[in-house]
Amino acid sequence: MTPLLQVEAVSKFYGARIGCTDVSFDLYPGEVMGIVGESGSGKSTLLNCLAGHLPPDAGAVRFDTRADGLRDTVTMNEPERRMLGRTDWAFVHQHARDGLRMNVSAGGNVGERLMAVGARHYGDIRNTATDWLGRVEIAADRIDDRPSAFSGGMQQRLQIARNLVTGPRLVFMDEPTGGLDVSVQARLLDLMRGLVREMGLSAIIVTHDLAVVRLLADRLMVMKDGHVVETGLTDQVLDDPQHGYTQLLVSSVLQV
């Protein structure tokens, strides 16, 4: 089987400082990969390199494109990469304000990706938006409200709807539950798990919450100081960590 994403020796430096270095892995269709590690370990840097938001200094990120199979997204031209960014890829930001247009209604936020790929029938766009609001448990009568009138959890669910509406094949998420109350987190996680299963999504989820990866990720990658220190099936890594740092991370001491 062709991997959906093939990451090979990706490195990114900020001047002399390591962002992430020598990261390699394959992600197969339908797989959810979790990336955990302490603050500053390079999770966001890596994710942004994979999603085309940051140019890596070295390495290749090959995505199984619909037209031509595996293509290195690092060397592909910008229009193609941005096209992937609004069709086959989705990116859920930690802060909803980075992933939503706060001055546009919920319906407009969900509809934007549809219009970006050429939808030109208002009624159809609105119906699809209504349907997606329902799927992320936002009442249909909130469709014309702006996200600024939504709670943090609702904003995050709206961001998810906005991203999934065009049926992306790969979803990048950076701390999607960060900054939310525990009960709100639980509901969001539940919803995400449902969507991942239902849509057979492939995803890469960055978090430092082990509960999130336990619930969502098939596989787990542990990062420290920009390096991958351990990788494996989630349950294996969490139940039988091999690397000293992972052992520390899994022990209750480091869990926040």
């Binding site: 941005r82 609004r86 247009r101 546009v104 209604s105 319906g107 407009g108 509809g111 934007e112 990706r113 219009m115 970006a116 790929v117 030109r120 208002y122 766009i125 609105r126 469709i143 014309d144």
Partner: peptide, 14 residues
């Protein structure tokens, strides 16, 4: 990338 133009018109209609 002109999807945003139609978002403005969508907002108008809504």
């Amino acid at each position: 990338e002109y999807g945003l133009m139609h978002v403005k018109l969508y907002e108008d209609i809504s």
